[in-house]
Write a protein that binds this DNA or RNA. Structure first.
Length: 421
DNA sequence: TCTGGGGTCCTAGGACCC
DNA sequence: TCTGGGGTCCTAGGACCC
């Protein structure tokens, strides 16, 4: 049996933890650069505002309904996510952290305990310890647990727990579920299925295997089997190391000069290299891209170039030099750039990385110690405390975050103060 | 003034090998 | 009228997820 625990409107709930006056009021959180609406409270969903709506296109709507708006505050969301996951870990020996706001828990199939009661206890504990409301779906496969979670949110919002394995009228239940709401069936497949008259989960589940495999590959077939109660997806307790790492950001304003692009790229390289080191890997291949704003009616240019590194590396300066060379080779003056970024690939475990025959043993030890020291200091004092001079001091190109809430839990100066009256 | 930032997996088809 | 039978590797593109 699997349980999927999903935080309700996670980013909105995080904002509400330290601002209870937002409870019951319409709230949205924007993507990086205050671009699009990426989280909506139930009140906003009820008003009909779409996920992904560009902020500058829904300002009227927001003003009309008095919606509270926040920039993304990943310091806060990341920390609260950690607290939720630590709490969940107490309820099951095996757990998979699936995303910032979701986790699968494994529960033994021996039904010596009351599943619903177990779910309710998890829900109450997470709420009390972290302030975050969650919903819980339970089922014999991950896909069914996902579905149960949806139903818990939509149909039993007060109880917040739904066990699909206890359902006696599965056919009726699945018939009431839109096929595109099944985990693993996105826009294209649900449109394709609709063309063949398949619009609900019951119809999809009944399709012949060969028909599904031919049109939706083995991934689609696995989804159907999981829906029928045959587990095809295991709990992945250990997150496998990333096979590719991308770091990029849109600029807060158009950037034209190579100097500013170099600074921005240098800071993304620093972040990507730190991610690489955190998972104990080194990259063999490095790519850089550069692009203007495709939404604007002005001269457009975008390009990408990549190089193979002489030896796999996670040492920031060894990535910085080729990255900046790549940037210079694709940079064309006279454009208003919106975004640049770095992609690291062909990632290997550091211990497996092929070394250079001519490597200076002393130097490589110093590089490693320097990286460890920088990472440790930034881990304690906050990301970006120590950085390479190539990143520049001004960073006037940084993304807009005009509606940012405080880092309530991760910055001393912003920790809320409780005053006795 | 103004539209995010990450990831994964699968398949078809071409190039090439014996 | 007729044109073998296996393989591997790589890439581009398409699908999905949060």
């Amino acid at each position: 049996m699997f349980a999927l625990v999903d935080c309700n409107n996670f980013y909105v709930s995080c904002e509400r933890v330290f601002m209870p006056s937002l409870e019951g009021r319409p709230v949205v959180v924007l993507s990086n650069n205050d671009g699009n609406v990426v989280a909506r409270s139930n009140e906003v969903k009820a008003l009909g505002l779409e996920f992904g709506a560009p902020y500058h296109k829904c300002r009227d709507f927001i003003a009309r309904y008095g919606v509270q708006v926040f920039s993304s505050n990943y310091a806060l969301y990341g920390d609260l996510s950690l607290r939720v996951m630590e709490t969940l870990a107490r309820f099951s020996p095996s757990m998979e952290i699936y995303s910032i706001d979701e986790a699968f828990l494994h529960l033994p199939s021996s039904r010596r305990f009351d599943i619903m009661e177990w779910g309710s206890r998890i829900r109450a504990t997470v709420r009390q310890w972290t302030g975050i409301p969650v919903s819980i779906g339970i089922g014999p496969t991950k896909t069914l647990a996902k579905l149960a979670n949806r139903l818990a949110k939509k149909r039993f919002p007060d109880r917040g727990v739904f066990d699909i394995s206890g359902c006696t009228d599965m056919d009726d239940l699945l018939e009431s579920v839109f096929v595109g709401d099944i985990w693993g069936i996105g826009h294209s497949y649900s449109a394709m299925l609709a063309r063949h008259g398949v619009t609900n989960a019951r119809q999809f589940r009944g399709l012949p295997d060969h028909w599904i495999k031919k049109r939706m590959t083995v991934t689609g077939l696995r989804t159907a089997w999981e829906l029928r109660g045959r587990p095809c997806l295991d709990l992945e307790e250990m997150a496998p190391p990333r096979k590719g790492i991308v770091s990029s950001r849109s600029f807060g304003r158009p950037v034209e000069s190579l100097g500013e692009l170099r600074e921005a790229l240098a800071s993304y390289v620093g972040r990507a290299a730190a991610k690489l080191r955190r998972q104990g890997s080194a990259a063999s291949f490095l790519g850089v891209f550069l692009a203007t704003n495709r939404f604007k009616a002005e001269p457009q240019y975008s390009n990408f170039t990549a190089v193979r590194l002489p030896v796999p590396s996670s040492y920031t300066p060894e990535l910085l030099v080729p990255a900046l060379a790549c940037l210079e080779s694709i940079y064309r003056p006279g454009f208003r750039y919106k975004k640049t970024g770095i992609m690291l690939s062909e990632i290997v475990a550091e211990c497996d990385a092929v070394r250079s025959l001519f490597e200076d043993q002393g130097a490589s030890g110093r590089k490693r110690r320097l990286s460890e020291t920088v990472d440790r200091i930034n881990g304690r004092l906050g990301a970006g405390r120590l950085f390479y001079a190539a990143e520049g001091m001004g960073k006037s190109w940084q993304m807009r975050r005009s509606l940012l809430s405080p880092a309530y839990t991760t910055r001393w100066s912003e920790i809320p103060v409780v005053k006795a009256l």
